[in-house]
């Protein structure tokens, strides 16, 4: 079949791994080394208002004459920073709580399960919006709101994994030789449940990027003059009739990174052979 030869393994690996990896890598690079570039994302230049893309400024200028390219990179930093913090917060908090709960079992576990159920009873994004609304706008509050919502999925996953592993031979053996609980958790359980957690985290990054952009789109995230892809899209939609580049570029950037994170998650899941979690819809 000549058609499917197109999708031979080499080709597919390029598509499934290297493409998303390069997108994520350049995103992370731009975000981390932002200070090295001499960018002026906030510099207002009234003479350049809504200037279309040109040779000198590839992506043109926005409604205040600020360079869109610079703001895009500054927005990359915002999304990178927020999603990294949110996922790190979620994985560490959720992982530790989930593992401990499963390990300790008994009434602690029962209470924990109920708590998780209640948190999962909120549609995630809705709770994040309400929390961000209550805490007030600002990047710190966005991280807090998304973190509060995000840890539950990881906790539930970690708990489920540990319950399945708890009676594995090496854990029972460690018990038998009198290893302290923290040692069992950190040395014998956590390494084994890392794979599904990593898969979940890579999808979590995609979710966090969209959520941050969504909150900023609603005006609950970064505040002017700071740049976020979400707020750039929101501002861009107001001028999409006259300057479509303002809404197209941040949207493309956002979609590319989210797509890359999702593809990477898919690849990791297949590679690490983790079964698709039906809980993903919840978190």
């Amino acid at each position: 079949m000549s058609k499917s030869e197109l999708f031979n393994s080499h080709h597919r690996l390029t598509m499934r791994l290297w493409l998303p990896l390069s997108i994520i890598a350049s995103w992370a690079f731009l975000a981390t080394f932002l200070p090295l570039f001499s960018l002026t994302p906030d510099a207002i230049d009234l003479t350049n208002i809504l200037a279309p893309p040109s040779l000198e400024h590839w992506l043109g200028h926005d409604e205040l004459g600020r360079p869109v390219a610079d703001r895009l990179i500054s927005g990359a930093q915002t999304s990178f920073f927020v999603s990294l913090c949110v996922v790190a917060l979620g994985v560490s908090l959720g992982g530790v709580l989930g593992v401990s709960s499963a390990y300790l079992s008994g009434w602690i576990d029962a209470v924990f399960v109920r708590m998780v159920d209640i948190m999962l009873a909120f549609p995630g994004l809705l709770l994040a919006i309400a929390l961000a609304g209550a805490l007030g706008p600002g990047i710190g509050n966005v991280i807090l709101a998304l973190g509060i919502v995000g840890w539950v999925g990881y906790a539930r996953l970690a708990r489920g994994q540990v319950l399945a592993l708890k009676h594995a031979d090496h854990v029972l053996a460690a018990h038998a030789i009198g290893a302290p609980p923290w040692r069992i958790i950190f040395h014998h359980l956590l390494p084994l449940i890392m794979a599904p957690l990593i898969v979940e985290a890579s999808f979590g990054i995609a979710g966090a990027i969209i959520a941050e952009a969504g909150l900023s789109f609603l005006g609950l995230g970064v505040q002017p003059p700071a740049a976020s892809w979400g707020s750039m899209i929101r501002d861009g939609t107001r001028y999409m009739l006259v300057s479509p580049h303002l809404v197209i570029f941040p949207g493309l950037a956002l979609m590319a990174v989210v797509l890359a994170a999702n593809m990477l998650g898919d690849w990791l899941r297949d590679r690490l052979d983790v079964k698709e979690q039906s809980s993903r819809g919840k978190s």
């Binding site: 058609k3 499917s4 197109l6 999708f7 995609a206 969209i210 952009a213 969504g214 789109f217 979400g230 899209i233 929101r234 939609t237 999409m240 809404v247 949207g251 956002l254 979609m255 989210v258 797509l259 999702n262 593809m263 898919d266």
Partner: peptide, 24 residues
Amino acid sequence: TPLDYGAMGFALFGMSIPNFWMGP
């Protein structure tokens, strides 16, 4: 088959397009 990849590629795109970009 390419049909499968096409459908799943479409699904991946659908998952990754934010509402607030697709809406406008």
